[in-house]
C-alpha cells in the first residue's frame, strides 16, 4: 500500500529505538563520516545493521556520504565494495560523481537519489535513471504540485518527506568544531562529538523581537528549526498517488522516530483506507510538543519553508 521510512545513523540507535512503525530504514548519516560508528563510513558495521533491519522484515537502504571530496573517494569506494556484496535494497546517493563510480562498478543494487542530489525537474530524473536511479528525494524547495508532476511524468518513484527537520545546507567541514571555543579534540586527535548536544543558530529581527529565525546545526549540516509536518494532509498525499513517505530523524533525540512513526503509520493507513474525516488535532498537539521550534509545511504549499498553512 505504502512505505514509511526513516533514518538511523549507527547500530546503537538501531538497537535502542522502536522502529516498528517503519517499513524501511535508511542506514547511515550522510553528512558526517566522523559520527560514531556511522554506517555511511564504517564497512564493518554494515552486516550487523543490515541483519538487524532484515530481522524485522524491513528494507535496508545504505546512505553514502553526500559530499565526498577527492580525498574521501577511496574510503567511500571501499564502503561501496563491501556493501555491494550484501543484500541491501538500495544505496542512497547524493553526489553525481558517485553515480559514475557505481556505474563503473556495474552496481546492480537500486539507487535512490538523496536530498542533496538537487532533483528539481522530471528531465533530471530521466537522466539519472540511466545511472540506475529508481527513487528520488525531490529538493525540499519543490511544491506538492511540482512533485506530483514529476511523479506523474517520470518512470521513477518519488520519496515524499512527511515529517522532521528539513536539510537546508551541508558542509565538508564541521561548523561546531570551527566555531565553538571550548570544543577540544580528544587525545588521538579525533572529534569528541560535541554535536551529540543540540546546537542552534538564532537571529533576532531589527524590531527587537528575539529568535525570529532559528536553525538547528548538527555540525556538517544545517536543518530547519521547525519540523516539517504533513499530518493534516495524509488524505491528500494518498489521493495524489504517493506511496513512499519519509520521516527525517537525523539530530533528533531517542524516541522521536518511534513516536512520529506510529502517528504517521496510523494516519496514513486510515487515509489509504479512504477515511477522509480524520481528527488530526491530538496528533498535531503531540507532534508540536516533540518539536523544539514548532511545525511548518516546508515548501509544499508554495511559501517560505518555515510557514505552516494547515489544512486547506
Amino acid at each position: 500500500m505504502f512505505e514509511l521510512s526513516t533514518d538511523v545513523c549507527n547500530i546503537k540507535t538501531l538497537k535502542n529505538e522502536d522502529l516498528s512503525a517503519y517499513d524501511a530504514i535508511y542506514l547511515g548519516d550522510f553528512s558526517c563520516p566522523e559520527y560514531p560508528n556511522n554506517f555511511s563510513s564504517n564497512p564493518k558495521q554494515l552486516k550487523k545493521g543490515l541483519d538487524l533491519v532484515k530481522s524485522h522484515d524491513q528494507k535496508a537502504y545504505l546512505r553514502l556520504y553526500a559530499v565526498p571530496s577527492n580525498h574521501d573517494m577511496p574510503w567511500v569506494e571501499e564502503l561501496i565494495d563491501t556493501a555491494m556484496d550484501l543484500p541491501f535494497d538500495a544505496f542512497e546517493v547524493h553526489n553525481l560523481g558517485l553515480l559514475r563510480v557505481l556505474q563503473e562498478k556495474k552496481c546492480t543494487i537500486p539507487i535512490h537519489l538523496g536530498v542533496f542530489g538537487n532533483l528539481y525537474t522530471h528531465e533530471t530524473a530521466k537522466v539519472l535513471k540511466q545511472y540506475g536511479v529508481t527513487r528520488v528525494y525531490p529538493n525540499p524547495e519543490l511544491s506538492l504540485k511540482e512533485i506530483t508532476y514529476i511523479a506523474d511524468n517520470t518512470p521513477i518513484e518519488v520519496l515524499l518527506p512527511v515529517h522532521g527537520k528539513i536539510p537546508l545546507v551541508i558542509s565538508e567541514t564541521c561548523f561546531i568544531m570551527e566555531h565553538t571555543e571550548n570544543t577540544k579534540l580528544c587525545g588521538n586527535n579525533k572529534c569528541n562529538f560535541p554535536c551529540l548536544e543540540d546546537h542552534w543558530l538564532k537571529r533576532g529581527r531589527k524590531d527587537g523581537s528575539s529568535n525570529d529565525w532559528s536553525l538547528k546545526d548538527t555540525g556538517r549540516m544545517t536543518l530547519s528549526g521547525k519540523d516539517l509536518c504533513l499530518i493534516e494532509h495524509a488524505d491528500q498525499l494518498s489521493s495524489a498517488g504517493f506511496t513512499a513517505f519519509y520521516v527525517q530523524n537525523k539530530g533528533e533525540a531517542e524516541g522521536y522516530a518511534s513516536k512520529v512513526g506510529h502517528i504517521y503509520r496510523t494516519a496514513l493507513e486510515r487515509a489509504f483506507a479512504g477515511d477522509s474525516g480524520i481528527d488530526c488535532a491530538p496528533w498535531l498537539a503531540e507532534l508540536d510538543a516533540l518539536s523544539h521550534e514548532g511545525l511548518c509545511n516546508g515548501y509544499y504549499f508554495e511559501g517560505a519553508g518555515q510557514r505552516y498553512f494547515g489544512r486547506a
Partner: peptide, 19 residues
Amino acid sequence: VQTGKICPGKCIMSSYLRF
C-alpha cells in the same frame, strides 16, 4: 577558502526563512 557551508549548490537557507 577551504571551509564553510557549500553555497551555492547545496543551500536553501534563504528561502526557508523568507519568500
